[in-house]
Write a protein that binds this DNA or RNA. Structure first.
Lengths: 215, 215
DNA sequence: CGATATATTGAACCGTCTCAAACTTCGTGG
DNA sequence: CCACGAAGTTTGAGACGGTTCAATATATCG
């Protein structure tokens, strides 16, 4: 859903676009959160530095994704947004959006849907991170991100980027992909990974599951 | 924020409360998402079964927390909600809430705030999970959850629950807590953990940080 | 008071991280 | 057009730490 559609003309006039070059910063953690962004083209990386200097990729934003939703509820951004490629974003002034919210239920619905999607995406992410085995984590990621044919995953960035997204070192990811290729689970080509037929069955190795839950 | 306050009387009449006994299920993953809940008393555990049969605790809900926010954006719940203790919850019919949303900007604000908090909490959670070292993860959890005095953390459930929340085996957590106690970082009493003075400095061992980011 | 779950510690295994080295790719400038 | 440097890619070897399996103690609840 394009937020802009829900905004009346006077506010729409306040919406501006901005272009970024690769490596350029859109906003930084702790910066005053004044705007909400939507990616029009290109890719941005949302990163956070943890207390130990480790770089943590929150997500790779692609066209249609919104950035800085937190700004609606918080005074400060809580991550850095950095362009990976050349990129253009649409900027929505937070104050105007909040004001319009009071009068425009459609906008409220749009924003609620946006946050709802964000919540679900974070849940998925958390689910991935909880898989402590590199291979299974990669498998799950792949089946979760397979395209419409269910067999092709196109990589948003470099393999190294994917590694930080998955919470693995790049070495571990390279090794895992190599092993999966050797075992015929996947085939790799530039920027893409082909899942072999019957990939799903790899996802559930000889395991009986569903621990009983008392109800 | 109590959602009920934002609802007009006719709808408020549709709000019911329900009591649960320990171990009882409020809703299950994949069930039709018809309601939104708010915890009044007691504790519930939100869990999900991953593809490998492992139990994953999404969160422990305590009074004031909302459950099934996803229901507003999705047709199905995506986790199980199970009472840990005896508990009472308030049930808001999803359809009524969505309808009221069209007319009531205050309710919209409340829901947006609720989802925003959820997003932030999930981000924090993700941040924790990305710390691959048990001790540092526990340290970070503790400093993040210290009470108003900044020195006391009260445990919502059992230590075992905390372990699954942190994505550790309970053995690993017990050992870590034991080691931290031995080193004087913390002191333990029933249901509580006392952080020793200067706990923060433990959080940043001899490390230089902030990897340079091209901007 | 017995049964069930939590709490606690031990020992061994396995997989990921870390450090290291080499190769490839790509863009920039001479 | 090629030389060069920077960043991504790939593989190796070893250490560390969490999981796993195991055993025992303690607590809680009917």
């Amino acid at each position: 859903m394009i937020l802009e559609r829900c905004l009346p003309a006077p506010i729409r006039a306040l919406v501006t676009t901005r272009t970024l070059r690769p490596g350029q910063t859109l906003f930084k953690a702790r910066g005053r959160a004044a705007d909400l962004y939507e990616v029009i083209s290109g890719r941005l990386r949302l990163v956070r530095h943890d207390s130990f200097g480790r770089l943590e990729t929150l997500s790779i934003a692609t066209p249609g994704d919104k950035l800085g939703q937190a700004s609606l509820c918080s005074e400060h951004y809580n991550c850095d947004a950095i362009a990976i490629t050349s990129a253009t974003v649409r900027r929505y002034p937070k104050a105007a959006v909040l004001a319009e919210l009071e009068r425009n239920p459609k906008l409220a619905r749009a924003i609620i849907a946006m946050l709802g999607r964000e919540v679900m995406s974070l849940r998925t992410r958390l689910h991935l991170q909880n898989i402590h085995n590199a291979r299974d984590r990669v498998r799950t990621y792949l089946s979760l991100n397979a395209g419409t044919d269910g067999r092709t995953v196109s990589l948003a960035g470099t393999v190294k980027d994917l590694a930080t997204y998955l919470g693995l070192t790049h070495e571990a990811l390279y090794r895992t992909l190599a092993a999966m290729t050797a075992d015929g689970e996947i085939k790799r080509s530039v920027g893409k990974i082909q899942l072999s037929t019957g990939f799903d069955k790899w996802c559930h190795p000889p395991t009986e599951m569903q621990a009983p839950v008392n109800s």
